[in-house]
Design a binder for these strands. Structure first.
Length: 473
RNA sequence: UCCCCGAUAGCUCAAUGGUAGAGCGAGCGGCUGUUAACCGCUAGGUUCUAGGUUCGAGUCCUAGUCGGGGAGCCA
């Protein structure tokens, strides 16, 4: 007897085998003939195996007829071709063992219509639904695809720290990491001048790391250290933002991929980003065809056409200045008027990629004033070698840049932005000793999944979403 | 954080200020291979919480909690 997954048992090649199947009952249908059909799922694929439970089974009346959604069972039987439509194989059971009941009155998941909002309140049970099973499998596929893509090209996977003492680049609010008892936090001595002359801050010298520490908002600066030693590297790990954002596109804890490459200029960076996105799409379509078909049929009727369109098109590369020109001449009534020097709003980005160009678009050479200190300054002195990759349906999916490799220019940028140079000497050392032109970008895993699956809310493409006011499960 | 909307049976939703309902799910019965099976019957409610207006509140008012959409921030 072979122990098969549901995915294996659904294949015609399984016909003739005596098998053991184990999983959860999705539905039971009683036939007019006095026997029952069980739909069995074990998470190995989107589809179920149809199990035939004859009345002759010793526990037919006592147990089988009481099975319903959520019960766990083992089934033994001979796989045969199914005479009816809907499945290639089916398994007439010779034995059915019930492992766990699921009280139908209390079990919250049923055959029909639950909203994603409701399922979010039962995150411990929602992986048992079609949609969340499909998301889990596609998410897994994307993660493998990311590693495959970089490993095949000789990138090194680098683990950058999750706890960091550098409030790098001011990329959003940080979560503080401390072992201090906040109710009894040690205070700094009163400043000179006596009582009331100043604020008595918390004395972080007495904290675990002897200084304020945070959860990382980006592994980029540390990735640069390794790129400037080993060539091509990437990070892939959790990232934290303490921003009070309540939107379908933001999480307090999410996963980010950040490649960083020595001797790559911005054009190389763009080419890599384009190939990377296409590879993820292609792998998802090739390796998860049933799940992708499910998203097409049940979640977003245009998802396959949109992904196919992205695979077939060359990404446009448009300078920021030209994009501003296009927006100003578009005749569109934007809520935020367009003028050179401003950061583009969501409405502008979506107009460009969805209405005007109708294809993935990479905008580059943004105004220096609205971008971080580490981006390479162009010869015009007004713009930097930044890039944003915009895709129809989602908007910005990648942000990246060529990094400033010239010591003097970088130091000047840091002073201009008011950074404390003492905290960044190690970063400046990368330019002080053997500096190289280099580039990189960041891609949010969950945003990628949104655009891949057509799901509308980022809280539904991560197993356990963390958002303001919610850290359940 | 700001603006708008919502909360009624296990789930999805109805209900002019006047007796709280339906579909699905569940239980029981029926039906000779079903595919979100089908047919009949039954059970199932602190209408989010706390106040208020009213003869009377699911419905109107105030505050709060939770959720959704949009904006900002960003990935």
């Amino acid at each position: 007897m072979d122990k098969l997954t549901v995915a294996q048992a659904r294949l015609e090649s399984a016909i003739g085998k005596i098998v053991l199947l184990q999983g959860w009952v999705r539905t039971r249908r009683d036939s007019k003939g006095g026997f029952s059909f069980l739909e069995l799922n074990d998470g190995s694929c989107q589809g179920n195996v149809q199990v035939i439970a004859e009345a002759a089974l010793p526990n037919y009346e006592s147990e089988v007829k009481k099975l319903h959604t959520g019960c766990s069972v083992s089934v033994e039987g001979l796989v045969k071709a199914s005479p009816a439509k809907g499945q290639a194989t089916e398994v007439p059971a010779t034995k059915i063992t019930v492992h766990g009941w699921a009280d139908a009155d209390a079990y919250p998941i049923q055959k029909k219509g639950a909203t994603f909002e409701f399922l979010r309140t039962i995150s411990h049970l929602r992986p048992r639904t079609n949609t969340f099973g499909a998301i889990a499998r596609v998410r897994n596929c994307v993660c493998k695809s990311i590693h495959d893509f970089f490993q095949e090209q000789g990138f090194l996977y680098v683990h950058t720290p999750i706890i960091t003492a550098s409030d790098c680049e001011g990329a959003g609010e940080l979560f503080k990491v401390t072992t201090l008892d906040l109710a009894k936090a040690p205070l700094l001595p009163s400043p000179p001048g006596g009582e009331g002359s100043g604020v008595r801050g918390i004395d972080f010298h007495q904290d675990f790391f002897a200084k304020p520490a945070f959860l990382t908002v980006s592994g980029q600066l540390q990735a640069e250290i390794f790129a400037c030693a080993l060539g091509k590297v990437y990070t892939f790990g959790p990232t934290f933002r303490a921003e009070n954002s309540n939107t379908p596109r933001h999480l307090a804890e999410f996963w980010m991929i950040e490649p960083e490459m020595a001797f790559y200029d911005l054009d190389d960076n763009m080419s890599l980003a384009e190939a990377f996105i296409k590879r993820i799409i292609k792998d998802a379509l090739d390796r998860c065809p049933d799940d992708m078909k499910f998203f097409q049929e049940r979640i977003d009727k245009e998802i396959l056409a949109r992904l196919d369109g992205i695979l077939k098109s060359d990404f446009l590369r448009v300078p920021y200045t030209e994009a501003i020109d296009i927006l100003q001449k578009s005749g569109q009534a934007f809520e935020f008027p367009v003028k050179w020097g401003m950061d583009l709003q969501t409405e502008h980005e979506r107009f460009l990629t969805e209405t005007h160009f109708k294809k993935p678009t990479i905008l580059f050479d943004y105004p220096r004033a609205i971008k971080p200190f580490y981006m390479r300054v162009n010869d015009d002195g007004k713009t930097v070698r930044a890039m944003d990759v915009l895709v129809p349906g989602v908007g910005e999916i990648i942000g990246g840049s060529q990094r400033e490799e010239r010591f003097d220019v970088l130091e000047g940028n840091m002073k201009e932005k008011g950074l404390n140079l003492a905290h960044y000497q190690w970063y400046l050392d990368l330019r002080r000793y053997g500096t190289v032109p280099h580039s990189g970008f960041g891609l949010g895993l969950e945003r990628t999944l949104l655009f891949l699956t057509g799901m509308a809310n980022i809280r539904d493409v991560i197993p356990f979403p963390r958002t303001p006011g919610n850290a359940e499960f």
